[in-house]
């Protein structure tokens, strides 16, 4: 059991309130870190990130690239002997990072998520071409993946016009912000 000094922020308790996950369960067996296919892109291994949460090291956890690189493939948590839903922890940490306005560890990934949600808010469904164009425009990256994009257009894998839903009111109800 880890006891934090008086006045020290209790990140583990905050995240437990949101997710119901008890961080005392993590044994640091590193099964998650061994299973994760994307550790190369992370600054902290998944179990180390859980350690940061246990220790209440909020700044390091919220500013890490790990929480953004995790795609939620559930490989870690399907092997975790303590059944800790690690992708859910990542979700909660990302939302906390956004709410607190800290420095984002992987701004490109956040940019991508925002573009996806913009098209869902507008049309009710994703529109890949628009997501890609806006994403690249924001990144000022006009050259990479042009070849792939053209190939996809040619094979009709990127629709020119978005597929839309009829009930626009429903979207207003879902996207209140």
């Amino acid at each position: 059991m880890i006891e934090l000094k008086k006045g020290h922020g209790d990140l583990a308790r905050d995240i437990q309130k949101l997710t119901g996950i008890n961080f005392n369960g993590c044994l640091h067996c590193r099964t998650c870190s061994n299973a994760c296919p994307f550790v190369d892109g992370m600054d902290y291994l998944p179990n180390v990130l859980l350690r940061l949460v246990q220790m209440g090291m909020e700044k390091q956890a919220l500013e890490s690239s790990t929480i953004w690189v995790c795609v939620g493939c559930n490989t870690c948590c399907s092997f975790c002997p303590m059944a800790i839903d690690i992708p859910m922890v990542m979700d909660a940490l990302r939302e906390k990072a956004l709410a607190q306005g800290v420095k984002i560890g992987e701004p490109d990934i956040l940019n991508f998520h925002n573009e996806v949600l913009k098209t869902v808010k507008k049309y009710g469904r994703t529109h890949k071409l628009e997501i890609m164009m806006r994403y690249k425009l924001k990144k000022h990256d006009f050259l990479s993946d042009v070849g792939v994009g053209l190939k996809m257009l040619k094979k009709r894998k990127l629709d020119l016009t978005p597929s839309k839903i009829k009930d626009k009111k429903a979207l207003g109800k879902i996207f209140k912000k």
Binding site: G72, D91, A92, L110, H113, V120, R125, I165, L171
Partner: peptide
């Protein structure tokens, strides 16, 4: 009829309420 996106990987990454409401509809 008139289905919408489930929220994909992006909704649950940044907004848990949107991620919950999209499949609800």
């Amino acid at each position: 009829d008139d289905w919408n996106c489930c929220g994909s990987s992006s909704a649950h990454s940044v907004d848990h309420e949107v991620a919950r409401d999209l499949p609800w509809r």
